[in-house]
Structures are given as structure tokens and as C-alpha cells.
Design a binder for these strands. Structure first.
Length: 847
RNA sequence: GCGGGCGUGAUGGAAUGGUAGACAUAAGAGACUUAAAAUCUCUGGGCCGAAAGGCCGUGCGGGUUCGAGUCCCGCCGCCCGCACCA
């Protein structure tokens, strides 16, 4: 018997699969298609355990579906544009293009040994001109359909580097390289009109039955549909042209509790006032130093500035309210102005406390015990409350009833209008960077902004650029910028902004169906392969990537690039958890942490120094914490099949999995054990008899593993494989019975450990490739249990159990339960109060 | 701050509202071996008990239910997202 040698086995079968083009997908109308896709990687240059887990899950699905008669498409590509390539160029003087393609080559070389059943013939990178040229064609089509426009938007501006910064490049309000205080600056930017689809993107979530409920909920909250009242507070002696402050509120029922009006520092009125009021200008300037993220706005200290202006309350013209500029009000949402009701909104409450504004209850709890005193009183809108300041409804009403009545009242009295708003903003896609897809438009002095002619596509990035100075090299490129106007042919300038990388990833799944088509998609291929039957990726993409892709699919459909069925491109979605690892830390003389790689640690001590390492509980693998395990090392020591088995075995796929050396070793030991058992069976000729128990267990295992894969219960499926292996190992059945059981076992293992399975299959004399063998089918007759063991509870606590025939009538079960010794003892001669029998599950005696 | 999720033995985890801890890991004991490794067998939530058995136990505090890890309410902790990271 030869020992299990993964290095030899894995290479052998990878070569066979490649020679036979086992995983090359071709359209075949005679078979049902199945499109499984994992979110494509960013080419950082190294694969990590998260990739291994993600792609192994997809591979299990792909191989399983293939064995159940599906024509499977399982492609791979690269999300290859983005900042890291430019950062690398700045740091080491290379070129983003070379850096990226080298990384792709390196990563591909690390991925191939994993044995994923990928169709590499469809591979592309989003930075291939062939791909982004088609993306430019889409952009032009979107322009024609009115889905693209330009407007001013705020960016983070680094005044020292003279460049726009991404949010992650702003650290505590300062540029990451220059350390200069970041300013907000307005630039004219390109936008997709995703907000046209707010209602559609929201309501269509209902149809996504195979998406996680949490993702749909997050998207729904992100779109943020609300019904409210829009109305104007009339300004008393406002600046010329400012008669009113228009506000939007979802709680018009609390209007009588208003104590101030707040406007955004970017509100036109605020901008007007700063013209000739230095204090306002100073306050606004201060606000504009804040980072642009919503998170930064919300976390910042709530600050206000009393403009001195007053407005009249719409329900009582004699009531005047102060107008504050407040740093927490977003110009992007609603009208950029709100009224504050401190009694029923905690943020307004804090603001009122700070600036000594009145706190006016408009309702209290039903028994009057709860009102705004130490904090705002904010019951849910469905809770009934007692109103003290209602103006169009009953004294007792829910918030929702009051909102509806308030809107109706205000509409009837011409105070305002009920309106529906969405939180979702249009998608700003302009990036002032080199390494992205050029926006295919030209600025002409005569014709204005003109789309490129499609025959000029792709508008390719120039290669001769340098990164020795900050900013976008396209802006200062001597010739690339200059181009004739596509409309009038006069000298004109190219747009130098490139596209957000989210654009690249919003349609790659469609491109995979025809990766070299001369149009963005090809109808027969898109019709056949779309939709993605199963999409798998991290939950961190739950909102933006998935929402943008849903929008893009709709837009592509309108332009004729996708069939109508594909407007929701992902039929089923699965979000997997991270791979984590313990962190090993020691400290230097000044107490600063030093992190150690897992392989530097032995028995809790640093190998080289013998120092005891502090163990910090598991966290996402990251370079900075050095808690990374390199898949390449694992494949070298144990083989890909062990890595694949382990990443799926130890945790439910939607949760994080902790990588442990002992777990990986145990996975290897288990495969070695199965190998030995298979070798013994392959060479056995001996005596033995049939084993009905083994056959029964085999069918049960087929059923359980199949269900496990179908429901993404990979860890449960693997637990069943362990259990069946134990059973098979113990069995004294005949060689023939065991051979049958063993073949079934490796077939069930095949999606997870495919090289191992092929080799054992061959060893056992299996016909052809196991990759081409049909999935085993459980005999339903073998799954039926004749007897069941029923636990017997007394008052909900387990006290005994009885084993009865499955179909024993309820009355008989009751009799047997009451006759049980433990029940007799508990009853102590009395009669039970109640007897609950759940057939096949449990008996509960209540006394 | 807002939105979403998660929390079970020493560890990873299992459990359509129905026997909490399947399966695995670490650990301990034993078998085999000159020895070690490998392999095999057994033990394996806590407390009391010789055992039978009993009591407690799924982050914390309440609630619904014959019955709650699971459902509801309120906390605590950790993770993800927050529109220019990918």
C-alpha cells in the first residue's frame, strides 16, 4: 500500500482535467445550465485563506451540480483596477499595468494548484482594454438613455499633495501621506441616475427568495423609503431671495414640539449668510473640515450656530423659532434642512440641552409615566400614546396614525405636501485617478460635453505616464488629453476622470457569458447562461456592490444588452464568513506590540527567543497583525484537498472560521485514514457477508450529504462523512458491500476533495473520471426508520425515553408513557394535568 | 452615531419551538512498539454521588409557551457596512 501523497495525486488529476477540458463550459441546449460564481478577486498578488474558502464553496456547488446533470459555468477573472496599483507605482516606481498583470500571473499560479473546477478559458481582467472598451460602450448607451449626468459634488481635497483623497486615505481628518488637514472641495462629477430606480430596486427585493433576509433588509434600509411632509417655514427678515426654509420631516405629528430649525452648512441659506458674516463663515469652514463620510458626521460632536434669523411656525404664526446651522445635517438628504423636536428625537434633545432650547412634549406614554425628561421619549410608531399637543387626531393614537393625520391636515390647509423620499443617492462614478476605466467623453468648446464615437473605443489608457508627482497623470499627459471633437472635429479635450471600480464589478458576471464578444454581451450566450444561479461572496458587499449590480442589470436591459429575466442577475446569493486566526503578540521595551507569524510560535512561545507570546483571540487575517496563514504553504505541506476539507469542515459557511494548525493536520490525518481504508478494501478478497446496517447508513449518508450541499450546510455534510467513515471502518461486511460503500463515500467526498476522490476512484476500479460520474441517489425505502426513540418529559424536563414503532397510535404512546417508571414515580399515584404527545418527537407529562 | 449580524463545553461547532453539546480538535487513560511516531480503544459541560440518580447550565435581565439555544422586550460584548478601500 502506498501512502497518501497529495503532491503527486493533485498534479496528476489537474493535468487530466486540463487535457480533457473537463471544466470548459459550452452552450448545450439539451442540458439545464447552472451558473455558479464567486465574487472575483482583487489581484493583490497573493491568495489568502478567504479566497480558498470562497472559491472552495463555489467549487463544491459547481462539481455537485455537474454530477447532477447540469451544464455548469464556473468562470474566474480579476477586479484589476483601483488604487493599490497606483500606490505601488508611487512607492516603488513601477507601472500600475505591469504591477497588476504580474500580480495576476502570480495569483493564477497560486490558484491553479487548488484544483477549482474553473473555466479558465473565459478569464479576463477588468483592466484589459477589451473589457473596459465594452464598459465605455455601455457608458455611452447609458448616456443616450438619460441614465448619466454631471453635477457638483464634494470630495476630500489634500491641499499639500493637490489631489483628491479616497475616504480611506483620510485619517483623523488628515491626508495619509501629507498629513495636511483635508478640505472639502466641490468638483463637477459624473453620476449614474440610480435614484430613478429607488422604488424598483426596493420592491424587487421581495422577489429575491434565495437571498439572505439580512442582505435584503440592509438594502431596503439603505434605499430608505420614507413618507413625510415637506413644507416651508417662512423666514422673518431673511436675506433677499430667501422667503422660506423648506424642510422635510417624517414626523410632522410632532410639529407642535418644534423648538428650532436646523440647516446644513452646505445649505444655500448658510452659504448666503457666510458672504457677509464672518462668524457664520468661520463656523461653516469648521464644519467643512470634517471628513465627508456619513460616519464621521454622525460621530462628531453635535455643533450648532445660531444665525439670529427667526422663522414662523406654520401652525401658529405668532410662534417664532430660531434657525441654527448644524454640523450633523446632510445637504444630500431631504431638503438639507430640518425642524428639531427635542422631546421625541435624541439628537435634537442633546442639541436642545446644549443650546438651552425648549423641550416640548407632544405626547406621553398611555399611563403618563414616560415623557421626555432625561432623554427623548421615542416609542415605535405603532405604539399607542397619549397626545398632549395633537392638531388633527384623537388624544389616543399611534405615531403612524398621527403622521397620516398630520399630513392630511397640512395638505388640506395648504401648509405642505405629503411626499415620498428615498435615502438612496445617485451614484457618483468620477475618480480623479489614472488606473481606472477612462470615461469616454470629450469636452469641446463649441459642442460641450460629447460622447466618443463607439468605433473609437476602447479609449485606452496611455502607458507613458509617471507617478513621481501626486495627482492624476492623465491630467498632465501631453498628448492623450488632446483629441478632435467627435462631433465637429475641432481640437478638444478628453475627460480625464476615470470610473469608480464598482462600475467594473457591476457587469463582469454578464461578460463572463461571452468574454470576447465585440459588443458588451452576446444575446444567445446571455440568454442561455444568465442568470447567475448561485452567487457567493462576502457580506461586506451586501449593499453597494450588489445594489449597483442590480441597477446595472436594469440599465443594460434597457439598452438591449441583457434579457429581461436578467434584471435581477443573481437568483441565489450566499454570503460567507471570514477566515480568522489567533494573534500572537509580544512587546518591545517601550511596550509597543510586536506581532508574530503563526509559524514562529511553538507551544505558546516564540521559537527564536523562547519568549511567551500573548494570545489575542481570533481576528480576520491581516498582514499588519501577522496572523496570516499562506494557502501556498498549506498546499505544500498537506495538499489542496486538505485545505479545502478544513476550510469547509469546521464552521458553518456563513460564519467566520478559525484556522488552526491542529485542525488542518486533523483534516490531513482523516484523508490519510480514508486512503488506508480504501487501499484495504481495494486489495481485499476475504470473506464476509452483506451488512444491511452499512447499506442503510450509506443511503442515509447520501441523503444527508446531498441535503448538506443543497442547503450550504457544508460543515454538516462533512460531519456526516466522518460518521460514515467510522461506520465503514468498523463494518465486517463482505468485500463487495464495502467496495460499494467506499465508492459511494468518495463520490460524496468528490466536491470537497476532488483529486483525492479521483485517485481513490481509480484505485477502486471506478469507470472513467469521478468528475463525470453521476451523483449517487439515496433509496427512499432505506431512509425510513421503523422504530423511534421518544424522550419522555415531566414538566418539560427529560426523565425517561421509550422506543416505539414509528406508526404506533397516539393513545398507545400515551399509555406506554404513563406506564413508564419515572413517570409513575413523578405522578405518585395522581393523574397528569395534561399529556402532550408530538408524534415521532416527544412526550411531555404535565403534573 | 445609524443600519445589519453574531454570542452554546478547554476549542470549532450540532440541534424543523421538542432528549442541549452530533461531528471534530485539544487533553487524559489504555493497547501495539525496545522506544518514539503513526494507528486503534475508552473518557470527555459543571457540581453532588460508590453507583443509580439528582441539581445547575446555550453572553446578562425579563417575558410568551406544556416545553425556549431557537420566539418577543431591554441590556452587554464582538464583527460587517455607512456611498472615493476592494
Amino acid at each position: 500500500m502506498s501512502p497518501y501523497n497529495p503532491a503527486k495525486v493533485e498534479k496528476k488529476w489537474q493535468d487530466v482535467w486540463e487535457d480533457q477540458s473537463t471544466f470548459t463550459a459550452k452552450r448545450d441546449e439539451t442540458k439545464p445550465k447552472y451558473y455558479v460564481l464567486e465574487m472575483f478577486p482583487y489581484p493583490s498578488g497573493r491568495i489568502h485563506m478567504g479566497h480558498v474558502r470562497n472559491y472552495t464553496m463555489g467549487d463544491v456547488v459547481a462539481r455537485y451540480k455537474s454530477s447532477t446533470g447540469h451544464n455548469v459555468l464556473h468562470p474566474m477573472g480579476w477586479d484589476a483596477f483601483g488604487m493599490p496599483a497606483e500606490n505601488a507605482a508611487m512607492a516603488s516606481g513601477g507601472h500600475p499595468k505591469e504591477w497588476t498583470y504580474q500580480n495576476i500571473a502570480d495569483m493564477r499560479a497560486q490558484m491553479k494548484p487548488m484544483g477549482w473546477s474553473l473555466d479558465w478559458s473565459r478569464e479576463f481582467a477588468t483592466c484589459d482594454p477589451e473589457y473596459y472598451g465594452q464598459q465605455q460602450a455601455l457608458f455611452i448607451d447609458f448616456m443616450e438613455k438619460g441614465l448619466v449626468y454631471r453635477k457638483n459634488a464634494i470630495v476630500n481635497w489634500d491641499p499639500v499633495d493637490m489631489t483628491v483623497l479616497a475616504n480611506e486615505q483620510v485619517i483623523d481628518g488628515r491626508g495619509w501621506r501629507s498629513d495636511a488637514l483635508v478640505e472639502r472641495r466641490e468638483l463637477t462629477q459624473w453620476f449614474f441616475k440610480i435614484s430613478d430606480y429607488s422604488e424598483e430596486l426596493l420592491s424587487a427585493l421581495d422577489g429575491l427568495d434565495n437571498w439572505p433576509a439580512k442582505v435584503k433588509l440592509m438594502q431596503s434600509n439603505w434605499i430608505g423609503k420614507s413618507r413625510g411632509l415637506q413644507f416651508g417655514f417662512s423666514l422673518i427678515d431673511g436675506p433677499a431671495g430667501f422667503d422660506e426654509v423648506e424642510v422635510y420631516t417624517t414626523r410632522p405629528d410632532t410639529l407642535m414640539g418644534a423648538s428650532f430649525v436646523g440647516i446644513s452648512p452646505d445649505h444655500p441659506l448658510a452659504k448666503e449668510l457666510e458672504q457677509d458674516n464672518a462668524d457664520v463663515a468661520a463656523f461653516n469652514a469648521e464644519c467643512r473640515k470634517m471628513a465627508t463620510t456619513e460616519e464621521a458626521m454622525e460621530k462628531a460632536d453635535k455643533k450648532g450656530f445660531d444665525t439670529g434669523l427667526r422663522v414662523r411656525h406654520p401652525l401658529d404664526p405668532s410662534w417664532e423659532l430660531p434657525v441654527y446651522i448644524a454640523n450633523f445635517i446632510l445637504m444630500d438628504y431631504g431638503t438639507g434642512a430640518v425642524f428639531g423636536c427635542p422631546a421625541h428625537d435624541q439628537r435634537d434633545f442633546d442639541f436642545a440641552r446644549k443650546y438651552d432650547l425648549p423641550i416640548i412634549d407632544t405626547f406621553v406614554s398611555m399611563d403618563g409615566s414616560q415623557s421626555a425628561s432625561e432623554e427623548a421619549f421615542v416609542p415605535t410608531k405603532t405604539e399607542k400614546v397619549r397626545w398632549t399637543k395633537q392638531f388633527a387626531w384623537d388624544e389616543v393614537a399611534t405615531g403612524q396614525q398621527a403622521v397620516d393625520a398630520a399630513i392630511a391636515h397640512c395638505e388640506a390647509n395648504n401648509i405642505g405636501q405629503g411626499v415620498t423620499k428615498y435615502r438612496l443617492r445617485d451614484w457618483g462614478l468620477s475618480r480623479q485617478r489614472y488606473w481606472g476605466c477612462p470615461i469616454p467623453v470629450v469636452h469641446c468648446d463649441d459642442c460641450g460635453v460629447v460622447a466618443e464615437n463607439k468605433e473609437n473605443l476602447p479609449i485606452a489608457l496611455p502607458d507613458d505616464v509617471s507617478f513621481d508627482q501626486p495627482g492624476n497623470p492623465l491630467d498632465r499627459h501631453p498628448t492623450w488629453r488632446d483629441t478632435p471633437c467627435p462631433s465637429c472635429s475641432k481640437p478638444a479635450r478628453r475627460e480625464t476622470d476615470t470610473m469608480d471600480t464598482f462600475v467594473d464589478s457591476s457587469w463582469y458576471f454578464a461578460r463572463f457569458t461571452a468574454p470576447h464578444s465585440k459588443t458588451p454581451t452576446s444575446a444567445p450566450d446571455a440568454d442561455y447562461w444568465m442568470n447567475v444561479d448561485q452567487y457567493i461572496g462576502g457580506v461586506e458587499h451586501a449593499i453597494l456592490h450588489l445594489l449597483y449590480s442590480r441597477f446595472f442589470s436594469r440599465a443594460m436591459h434597457i439598452c438591449g444588452h441583457l434579457p429581461e429575466k436578467a434584471i435581477e442577475p443573481f437568483d441565489a446569493l450566499f454570503t460567507q464568513g471570514m477566515v480568522t486566526h489567533e494573534i500572537y503578540q509580544t512587546r518591545d521595551d517601550s511596550g509597543r506590540p510586536i506581532y508574530h507569524l503563526p509559524e514562529e510560535i511553538e507551544n505558546g512561545k516564540v521559537k527564536s527567543s523562547g519568549e511567551i507570546a500573548e494570545i489575542i483571540p481570533s481576528a480576520k487575517m491581516s498582514k499588519s497583525k501577522r496572523n496570516v496563514v499562506d494557502p501556498v504553504d498549506i498546499v505544500r505541506s498537506f495538499g489542496a484537498d486538505t485545505a479545502r476539507w478544513f476550510v469547509l469542515s469546521d464552521s458553518p459557511p456563513e460564519r467566520d472560521v478559525e484556522w488552526t494548525a491542529s485542525g488542518a493536520e486533523a483534516a490531513f490525518k482523516h484523508l490519510s485514514r480514508v486512503w488506508r481504508i480504501a487501499s484495504d478494501i481495494a486489495s481485499a478478497t476475504g470473506e464476509g457477508s452483506g451488512d444491511p446496517e452499512l447499506t442503510r447508513a450509506m443511503h442515509k449518508t447520501i441523503h444527508d450529504v446531498t441535503m448538506g450541499i443543497e442547503t450550504f450546510g457544508f460543515n454538516a455534510a462533512i460531519a456526516h462523512l466522518y460518521a460514515f467513515t467510522n461506520e465503514l471502518n468498523k463494518s465486517r461486511a463482505s468485500a463487495e458491500t464495502k467496495l460499494d460503500a467506499m465508492r459511494t463515500l468518495v463520490q460524496l467526498m468528490n466536491p470537497v476533495t476532488p483529486h483525492f476522490a479521483e485517485e481513490v476512484w481509480e484505485m477502486l476500479g471506478g469507470e472513467g473520471l469521478i468528475a463525470d460520474a453521476p451523483w449517487p441517489v439515496a433509496d427512499p425505502a432505506m431512509l425510513v426508520e421503523e422504530n423511534v426513540t421518544l424522550p419522555i418529559q415531566v414538566n418539560g424536563k427529560r426523565r425517561s425515553e421509550i422506543t416505539v414503532s414509528k406508526n404506533l397510535p397516539k393513545e398507545e404512546v400515551e399509555k406506554l408513557a404513563l406506564a413508564d417508571k419515572a413517570v409513575q414515580k413523578a405522578l405518585n399515584g395522581g393523574a397528569p394535568k395534561k399529556l402532550i404527545v408530538v408524534p415521532g418527537r416527544i412526550v411531555n407529562v404535565v403534573i
